[in-house]
Amino acid sequence: MDDTLIISGHKIDNRFFLGTGKFASYKLMQEAIISSGARVVTVALRRVDTQSAHDNILKYIPKECIIMANTSGARNADEAIRIARIARAAGCGDWIKIEVIPDNKYLLPDNAQTIRATEVLAKEGFIIMPYINPDLADARRLSDAGAASIMPLGAPIGTNKGICTRELIKILIQEISLPIIVDAGIGRPSHAAEAMELGASAVLVNTAVATAEDPVLIARAFSLAVKAGRMAYHAGVVLPKDQAEASSPLTGFLR
């Protein structure tokens, strides 16, 4: 069965997306990308330190990867729009993860501003991946505005708490026809597998890989967990029951 993820006509043959922040070095980040086989990686746009030499992250990202700039640092729609345009001018292509975060404590996104930025940028031909609090009405608005996927958070960024928004993500998967990509909060491979078992189209992980003891090894573990979770989704995961049900026959032996 062909189970390739398709986003805006692009075939993506790995449902594990990797963020590039917090790695001890670009070399280590590169090894983690390669060991996981990730095909979509995110980067951020920042001011260059004009007083000292700076290394170019893009040269460490394998050629076959789609590079998706994020709009991190944006506190409202206008700033996100500005960052997206600069990222494209910098040669990053059309893929943009819109994140609008006015809150520094929980880093929770502002859905209304994200929708507004999506409306503007979709008309400019961007492939838009909006990072949102999982909300059905907002996901519908983003879909109508021309988003290419919806990226609901599992838990606040960098908390490693897993799919705390599980029931809401399930609703998005049921009701929204765009790919649902769980972003943020995924702390371990089993969380990634859980998202995929629910029917998510992909997951995006950063902190849990970059800050692990062995980022290269855990990147591969995440990628395998995503594949296992996807396979389980297709296989039809069984539901929990309150009463025991024997796996072995209970009758016709010794009695």
Partner: peptide
């Protein structure tokens, strides 16, 4: 003047 480039980010 803003001089910007790409860095690691999630």
């Amino acid at each position: 003047l803003e001089v910007l480039s790409f860095f690691g980010g999630g």
